[in-house]
Design a protein around this nucleic acid. Structure first.
Lengths: 337, 337
DNA sequence: TTGTATGCGTTATCAT
DNA sequence: ATGATAACGCATACAA
C-alpha cells in the first residue's frame, strides 16, 4: 500500500525546498534552469500529481460548478446539462449535479454548494421566488446563471423565446385556416408556460380571434390527465381543429384520444408538438414541431458563467434569449373555410 | 464583506478551545453539559458551518461519488443517472458527473476522480477493456460499480438481462407465427448489443429456425443508416414480417421506411421496440416494447457502492441482474402460415 | 473533562 | 534565486 506522494517527497528527491517545487510546477516566481530541471525530473520520476483538495483549501478555487435542476430524467434538461458538462469539462471545470423539486431543497443545495466553495451555480429551479428576500440565489455570494426562469430578482439568464416560438406556431395554424386551436402547455407557474400562453394569445389577438379559455390546458399538477382534457375538448359544441401540445406526455395523451375517437392526423386534427430530435422522429406522420439548439443555449450558459467567474464582463445581470425553430412536418393541413 | 467564520471564531465566542468545538459538533470524545451548551449556542448564534473542503482534507472522506458515462443526453443513461443522484443525495453524498466517449478520456477522468479523492466511481464506459492491464478501472484504488458493461476484469456490476429480454421478445413473435424476424440493435462492441444478439439466436435455435445474417443490423458507427438498411431488407426475396428494433433512432428509421413503402403496422409488419415511458406513448399504434425499472437498477447500483464504501459486504465482486418486462402493445399481429 | 499542538498537502510570504 | 515557515480550516492524539 504505497502512500500518496506529495510536494515534500518531490522536494526531498530533488534535493530542494517544497516552496521551490510549487514554484516550478506553477510557473510562479523565479526558478533557475538547473532547479527547474531537477524538480521536473523528480516529479516526473515519482509520478507526482498535486492534490486537488489541498490546493482548493489553500487557493479557494475549487474549479467546480454546481448545477441545480428539478429532474435529470427530463429530456430537455438532460440535453442542456449534457452540453454544459462537455463545455465545462473542456474549460477545466467539473460539474456537481443536484436535483431539487422543492424550495426547501433548493435552499439546502445552494447552501451546500456555497459551503463546498463551488465557483458558481447554474440553476433551473422549480420555483421562481417572486420575493427576492426569500430567494436562495439572491442570498448566494456565488456567481449564478439562471436557465429559462424569470426569477423575482435579476440574474444572468439564458432564456428560450417561448413567446415568439408560440406566436409563430399559432400563426402557422391560423394561416392554414384554423380558428379553433387547442393549447396544451406546462403550468403557468414557470416562465416557459407563461410565455407560451402570451405568444398564443398575441397571435390570436392579431388575427382578431377571441381567446377561449376552454381550449387551453395548463396543468398545475401532474394528476390532471391530458387524455381526460382532450376528450372534453372533442365533446365541445365546436371542437378544436388543431392542437399545439408542447410537452411529450401531453402530446402523446392528446394524440391517443384523437386516435381512439377515430380521428386521423392531419385530416381531422392538425398537430404541432415539441421534442428532442430522437422522440420526434418516432411519430407518424412526422410532426410539425418547435425545436431549439441545446448546443447554443449551453454555450451561452457556460460563457456567462465563465465571464462571471473571471470577473470579466459587466456587473449588471445580462439576459440572452435563444430562438425556437418551427420544423415543418406533415401533421398539419389547411382547413377549408 | 464578512469573513467566513471558522472553529476558531466559535471557540473564541464560547470561551473554549478549538478542539472542544470540534468534539462537541462531531459527538466525538467527552464533553460536559455546560461546555456542550456553550459551544452549541455560540455555533448557532454565529451560524457556523464546518468547511467541507477542510474537513475533506483532514479526514480523507469527500462524501462524493463520481459518475462516468458516455453521454448524459441518452435517455436511458439519463434516467439511471437521475435515480442514482436522488439516492446518493438521500445518503448524504454528492455526485460529480463526467462524460467520456474515449478510452483516453476515461483514463483522464478516473485519474481525476482519484486525485479529488472521491469515494467511489460509478461507470458505464464506452469501451470494455478486454485487457485488464490497460483498464483504467483496474488500476483504480477506489470502489467501482460498473453499469451494464462486461469488463475484462471483474467488478461489482449491475447489468440488464438483455439476453433473456431478447429471447422473450423473439419467442413472442415466433409464437405469433413469424419466421423472418429482423433485428436492429446497437453495436456488438458493448454488452447490451452482444447479449441481445445471443438471446435472439437462442430463441431462433430453439425453434429450429436458421439464423440469417442478412436480417441483422448492428451498426458499429452511427454513420450507417438504419433507413438504408431497412430499405434493403424490404427488397429481399423473402423480406421480414417482423422487426425488433431496440434503439430509438433505429426504431424510428425502420418505421419511417416501412410507412414510405406503404406498409401498415401491424398489418404488414409486426414491431417490437424499446424506450422510456415517455417516448413509447407517442407511437401509434402503441408499440410492444421492452422496458426495465430505472429505479431498481439505480437502487442496486447505489447499494453496491455504499456497501463497498463502508467496507460491508464480501470482498469478491458481485453481479446483480435486472430483468426486462415485455410490455404488450398493439404493434404485433399473428402471421398466417 | 478540557486544552494544546500537530498534520492533512498545498501555496504564499517572508527572509536569506 | 532559493529555502524556511506560516496559513487555509478542520480533526485528533496526547498532555494536563
Amino acid at each position: 500500500m504505497s502512500k500518496r506522494i506529495s510536494v515534500r517527497d518531490v522536494a526531498a528527491a530533488a534535493g530542494v525546498a517544497v516552496g521551490s517545487v510549487s514554484r516550478v510546477l506553477n510557473d510562479s516566481g523565479y526558478a533557475s534552469q538547473s532547479l527547474r530541471r531537477r524538480v521536473l525530473e523528480a516529479a516526473e520520476r515519482l509520478g507526482y500529481e498535486p492534490d486537488f483538495t489541498a490546493r482548493h483549501l489553500r487557493t479557494g478555487r475549487s474549479k467546480t460548478i454546481g448545477y441545480l435542476l428539478p429532474n435529470i430524467a427530463n429530456p430537455f434538461l438532460a440535453a442542456h446539462l449534457s452540453e454544459v458538462e462537455r463545455l465545462t469539462q473542456a474549460a477545466g471545470y467539473s460539474l456537481l449535479v443536484g436535483s431539487s423539486e422543492h424550495p426547501s431543497r433548493d435552499r439546502e443545495l445552494v447552501a451546500f454548494f456555497e459551503n463546498r466553495r463551488l465557483e458558481g451555480i447554474i440553476a433551473s429551479p422549480s420555483y421562481e421566488y417572486p420575493d427576492p428576500r426569500v430567494c436562495p440565489f439572491t442570498q448566494c455570494k456565488l456567481p449564478v446563471v439562471i436557465v429559462d426562469r424569470a426569477m423575482g430578482h435579476d440574474f444572468d439568464t439564458v432564456q428560450i423565446d417561448h413567446a415568439d416560438g408560440m406566436r409563430r406556431a399559432t400563426d402557422y395554424l391560423l394561416t392554414l385556416g384554423h380558428r379553433r386551436i387547442a393549447l396544451f402547455v406546462s403550468s403557468a407557474s414557470l416562465r416557459p408556460g407563461r410565455e407560451k400562453l402570451i405568444g398564443y394569445q398575441a397571435a390570436l389577438h392579431a388575427a382578431g380571434i377571441p381567446y377561449d379559455d376552454a381550449l387551453v390546458y395548463m396543468p398545475n399538477s401532474w394528476i390532471e390527465s391530458s387524455r381526460q382534457r382532450m376528450a372534453q375538448l372533442l365533446a365541445l359544441p365546436s371542437p378544436p381543429t388543431a392542437i399545439i401540445a408542447l410537452g411529450t406526455r401531453m402530446l402523446s395523451g392528446a394524440i391517443h384520444v384523437a386516435h381512439e375517437a377515430g380521428m386521423a392526423i392531419p385530416r381531422d386534427l392538425s398537430v404541432i408538438g415539441i421534442g428532442t430530435m430522437e422522440t420526434l422522429d418516432l411519430m407518424r406522420p412526422p410532426v410539425t414541431a418547435l425545436r431549439y439548439s441545446f448546443e447554443r443555449s449551453a454555450q451561452i450558459t457556460v460563457q456567462l458563467m465563465m465571464e462571471r467567474i473571471s470577473g470579466a464582463g459587466p456587473l449588471e445581470p445580462r439576459k440572452v434569449t435563444i430562438p425556437w425553430d418551427l420544423v415543418i412536418g406533415a401533421s398539419c393541413t389547411s382547413r377549408a373555410a
